[in-house]
Design a protein around this nucleic acid. Structure first.
Lengths: 218, 218
DNA sequence: CAATTATTCAATAGATTTATTGAATAATTT
DNA sequence: AAATTATTCAATAAATCTATTGAATAATTG
């Protein structure tokens, strides 16, 4: 293989991977799958995609080593191919959010809107878990919680939060979290709970970032 | 801003960035710029692109915060926007080359073709620089060497190597390097020099990786 | 085994990306 | 000021990507 051929083959392959990533709906699907596997139906429910379209996007990602699938009964469950991919994906996001002015602005506006500026970092949270008696609240849908969550967290899905208010102690400081930076469930939880007089803040990042951090420091 | 709007804005922005990356020629340009700034002419010379086309690709990357430009005289010089971007780019490459079977295969075939299997890692090189009296050979074009190189390296551009053979000592062990994994200059140098009886190996990675490593460990 | 369900396939039209062409611009040299 | 040089602009055609539609498939249930 000559030098030129080699380079062309590498750049072609690399750009195929990037093309498979470069679509807003596929990014949203990746974000969803970063909490655990989902059926096509599950993906259709939380996106605006039609069934056939969602299936197509998933196939694009499958043939480009981004997701994998397994069949069980009627259902086909998709998940991210491995944690290495998740790590790369999060590097990209981190770069985009911190270096691209447009995205930084959107991100900051969102955070201000939610008055959640005093969010807790992962490091702070680790500290608080050790030293304080806090209540760590996972507000994602319970399926996601069951699939994996931060040790010690309690599952109260956002849509059940209002009903379960009485069972939550007002004495403890509450930290709410959901998925990565694009997940707004935690913001909603903070808003609702602080309106009700709870002492509550959100985790700056989310479960996937926490998971990655644990993997990296092992 | 509602949750849905926020998500859409983020995913759109992120996918724009990825779209700007997802093209083989633009990847090749990024690779070139990872050694230092280049004029449009410089890029046209080492790619198969026409002038207008190269300019267009550069503009796509400029408007997506991947490269920046400055004008000097007739020339417009482009360079990567910052080291954070370079770091993300290298994460992507590393993932692609190690996790995507197709690319891994191409990469390995290339390495075998060049019989360069006993390449030296960056760690090994650091060790050798300290403890052995090696000759570190930078075979990139001299402009790139001048723009930045590994401390202690000697510049002998690949196209001048044949003529300068006499001035190279046969006593020292030689380590040749060029750019990242896609650069084949070092492979060519190893082939030529070992045919001439020199004791020579190549650096597994290249100058951009070395540079990133230094930055990361500072 | 017929009906149901979740998913995929295949065809198509509209949108976007890309390379090419030739003209336009802006800085420099003559 | 005219000519030259490096780059960009604008228009276009070809290639690729995307969403939609309706039919096909494969596993399960009645």
């Amino acid at each position: 293989m000559k030098g030129r051929e080699f380079k062309d083959a590498m750049y072609d392959g690399l750009s195929k991977l990037l093309k498979a990533l470069a679509n807003p709906y596929r990014l949203e699907i990746i974000e969803m799958l970063s909490q655990g596997e989902k059926s096509v139906e599950g993906i259709v429910q939380t996106t605006n995609l039609s069934f056939a379209n969602a299936s197509q996007h998933l196939q694009v990602m499958k043939s480009n080593n981004i997701v994998k699938s397994r069949k069980e009964g009627h259902y086909v469950y998709y998940s991210l191919i491995n944690d290495d991919f998740l790590s790369v994906y999060q590097h990209i996001i981190k770069y985009a959010v911190s270096e691209i002015a447009e995205l930084e602005k959107i991100m900051n506006r969102q955070r201000e809107d939610n008055k959640s500026l005093n969010a807790v970092s992962i490091e702070e949270l680790e500290n608080m878990i050790e030293n304080k008696n806090i209540l760590l609240l996972d507000v994602r849908p319970s399926v996601e919680f069951e699939f994996g969550h931060i040790t010690g967290a309690v599952s109260v899905p956002m849509n059940e939060l209002m009903e379960q208010l009485k069972s939550i102690s007002k004495d403890k400081e509450i930290i709410a979290y959901c998925r990565g930076p694009f997940c707004v469930l935690a913001d909603e939880a903070v808003k609702l709970l602080s309106e009700q007089g709870f002492n509550v803040r959100r985790l700056d990042e989310g479960y996937p970032e926490w998971k990655m951090k644990q993997l990296e420091t092992n």
